[in-house]
Amino acid sequence: MNTTLNAPLDLTNDAPIATAATDPPAVRRLLIGLALGFLGIFIFLPLMVVLVEAFRGGVGLYLKSISTPDARAALRLTLITAAIAVPLNTIFGLAAAWSIGKFEFRGRSLLLSLIDLPFAISPVISGLIYVLMFGLQGWMGPWLRSHDLQVIFAVPGIVLATMFVTFPFVAREVIPLMEAQGTEEEEAARVLGASGWQIFWRVTMPNIRWALLYGVLLSNARAMGEFGAVSVVSGHIRGLTNTLPLHVEILYNEYNFAAAFGVASLLASLALVTLAAKTAVEWVSGRSHNRLH
């Protein structure tokens, strides 16, 4: 006891403690270089290849390849699918996030797992589920046929499969935020006399709007780019049930490389627009966050 108390404190060892922020410049440059190099080779370069290949035959050929009736139909279908799937998923995702983030109820964790399900299973299986349910040999096949309704190999199937695959994005973005924010502000609004709708629009929504927008953009990017699930339910009917990703595959398989890359560049540019929107959202939300600080 006494010996430790009397021992002089060793204050001579004042060498700086190494932290991530104080690594020698060489190490920092090496790490940054590695990260940039990796991104360049695996992400930027392929994107460039798509663009270069798309324009290999000249601008004329490029414009021709993306304006064929089939390509235009594929673009239209892709946009329609996203236009239906994304808003519906936004509503369902919000409803799920609201109930999970703000309420305690039996089956809450089960619901949370169900939301993650589309992430967990292969997109091919996601597509197959709908074939087994709505296909001619499926559970509801005979009923659908007797009512002259077609789901599989038609637009409804594509929309359903896309919705299934993109469901988790909105809910997953919003739930952690809602849980972190708790329910005090909502309770405060309630005792102040606000109705359910007023609480949602005036208190809950402003608190989650950036996370929600972020989720919507991610959901949109995936909805436009989904291949696996859509491939299973689409039937690959040119000009009718081909989305852009499927159209790219068909062109590629027909050795029509210029057209394949042309359409692929179109798809990539849709993704880039989404990414740009996402960056803008982050920038604006970061700025409004800072302003509040």
């Binding site: 005090e184 502000e185 309770e187 405060a188 609004a189 309630r190 005792v191 102040l192 006399g193 606000a194 109705s195 005036r202 208190v203 402003p206 608190n207 509040l292």
Partner: peptide, 21 residues
């Protein structure tokens, strides 16, 4: 009666101010 019909004033421990307002 539900909370929003009781006309009570409630002050929360952690204020619960609407921080976007």
């Amino acid at each position: 009666r539900s909370a929003h019909d009781r006309q009570v004033g409630f002050v929360f421990q952690h204020y619960a101010l609407f921080h976007h307002m």
